[in-house]
Design a protein around this nucleic acid. Sequence first.
DNA 1: CGTTTTTGCATAGCTTGCTATCTATATACA
DNA 2: TGTATATAGATAGCAAGCTATGCAAAAACG
Lengths: 135, 135
Amino acid sequence: MTNWAARLFARAIDRRLKEFGVSSGQMPVFFALGDGAALSQKALAAIASIEQPTMAATLSRMQRDGLIERRPDPRDGRSQLVALTPEAMEKALKVKEAGMSVNAVALADLTETEREQFLELLGKVITSLEKMLED
Amino acid sequence: MTNWAARLFARAIDRRLKEFGVSSGQMPVFFALGDGAALSQKALAAIASIEQPTMAATLSRMQRDGLIERRPDPRDGRSQLVALTPEAMEKALKVKEAGMSVNAVALADLTETEREQFLELLGKVITSLEKMLED
DNA sequence: CGTTTTTGCATAGCTTGCTATCTATATACA
DNA sequence: TGTATATAGATAGCAAGCTATGCAAAAACG
């Protein structure tokens, strides 16, 4: 069921963001860099809770589409700092709005109390699974 | 968060099923055919709530791995009936056990009442999203 | 009965996720 | 200081999703 819900979320978001040339997997990058910050690939992967190669692929596509720039990190020759391009910065608000509006639809049938419960229980499930996968 | 939870579920299941040569995306097929039934690809896709081409690809991999057989449907020249092979039937119990055990871990921190609530709220979220995506 | 529409599957092409492994640079320590 | 270890990214290869499209068989209908 979580898989089903996640796919529906992604489809709903992709549908809204398609006209801006943005897709659901790029949302965490927009959220992390939307204030103009520049972060390493590793930091972005940690924020999005995905593995490094997955983030590398997402950033490649975003670079291909002119959404991000990679600059060498002056303090670490292995690392690069990733930042949104000016064009992407302009889209950041739309991305945030798409996320909020899909969330609103998804939670439309829940009371305020139920929404809090849902998020809390989902958080507990995630914590339990993470703990199990740790080793 | 649903995306995160879904990925954790899949990873946990994949880890347990790897030794049997089975993966998480194949679970719905095992559940649908585990009693010896033979269903069409379309029916399987509907049960798994995935699109037909996705199910086609999953079935291709399962056929490659000797988990299913495809027989022509005597009543419809376009259709094929899919059934588990005897080897896969032997694995069906392990697949069910893996699913139940991961669910148990995921819900370990929830009371019985909370589990019911969680499933109910997740169901409402899915229903709302599905309704929105209908058109 | 023939034509049109519907339906079941296949295929192409893409994104997003994973694991495993490699390279090159930083860091630690003997 | 020089070697060993740790870390940041890159790359390969796979699974599982999706949309769009094409084809052939079935069903509907004039």
